[in-house]
């Protein structure tokens, strides 16, 4: 039979090729390392409005480097005919599929991530209850930094079966919510207007975006949700704090009482 029957038959692993492959791998590693430093460095020096664009460029360029490296290596060790490629891919796929199923799954999900963009560097996402800003998107996993300054590593394979909540989806618009629980006995229209003004007069408010005041009656209080957008997503804690502090002061000046649940409900007595 003239065709290649096994993986060993089609590989051309002589000394020259091994050296060339090693050089390609080292070159790719150097390029990726440089890429991981240059893009964040660039991002730190451009205006805020362009920062996410530069951060998002890093994983894309890394993927390109990896793809080019793989193509260079494959074409060096085999004659890239259709038959040879089928043999190579089926053999490696079978081996890797069993040994590194999750790892390979994460790698593939990483590629899908770059295409579908469920999250990008700079996005504020929630995955499995972890909320934070995407710091980097690696080959296998993404890193987010929570509001408590903790880094959480999220394997990309979560993309397959987990809900991913993206607060700003690549934009600078991140809705923030300040909650107020008030004693039901008050003038709701007046409170609604007051809370609207609280948001409107916040120095952190992005005034080009809308402000909403949502009112819901609960069994134990009237729940007000003041929804607005900060100028920068990174200001969300300052913004919500500002809304809460000034909102409480304004409501207190209106004589509105805040809801208070007894520490020991009567039913427990």
């Amino acid at each position: 039979m003239n065709g290649a029957n096994s993986i060993t038959d089609i590989l051309a692993l002589n000394q020259d090729n091994l050296i060339a492959i090693a050089l390609i791998l080292v070159g790719a590693w150097l390029l990726i390392a440089a890429n991981q430093r240059i893009f964040p460095w660039l991002a730190s020096r451009v205006p805020n409005q362009h920062r996410n664009f530069f951060l998002a460029g890093e994983p894309v360029l890394r993927l390109l480097i990896i793809l080019v490296s793989v193509v260079l290596i494959v074409t060096r060790i085999i004659d890239p005919t259709f038959e040879n490629l089928v043999v190579l891919l089926s053999a490696t796929g079978l081996a890797l599929g069993f040994a590194f199923k999750d790892y390979i799954s994460s790698l593939l999900a990483g590629v899908v991530t770059l295409y579908e963009l469920p999250y990008r560097p700079g996005d504020w996402i929630t995955v499995n209850g972890a909320y934070g800003k995407v710091r980097s998107i690696g080959t296998r996993a993404a890193e987010i930094v929570t509001l408590d300054d903790t880094v959480v590593v999220i394997p990309h394979l979560k993309l397959w079966d987990q809900l991913i909540h993206n607060g700003n989806d690549g934009s600078r618009n991140l809705m923030c919510i300040a909650d107020f629980y008030l004693h039901p006995d008050h003038d709701a229209a007046r409170v609604k207007q007051a809370l609207y003004d609280v948001a409107l007069t916040s120095a952190f408010l992005q005034i080009t975006q809308p402000i909403f005041v949502i009112v819901q009656e609960k069994p134990w209080a009237t729940h007000y949700r003041l929804k607005a957008y900060p100028i920068e997503p990174d200001q969300q804690l300052h913004f919500v704090t500002d809304l809460t502090v000034r909102g409480k002061a304004k409501l207190a000046s209106l004589g509105v009482r805040f809801a208070q649940l007894p520490a020991f409900p009567e039913q427990m007595e």
Binding site: P47, Q49, R172, Q206, I207, T208, I231, E232
Partner: peptide, 12 residues
């Protein structure tokens, strides 16, 4: 320069 600074920082 102040106006450009505010633009760069996302201010309306």
């Amino acid at each position: 320069i102040a106006r450009q600074f505010l633009v760069d920082n996302g201010y309306p």
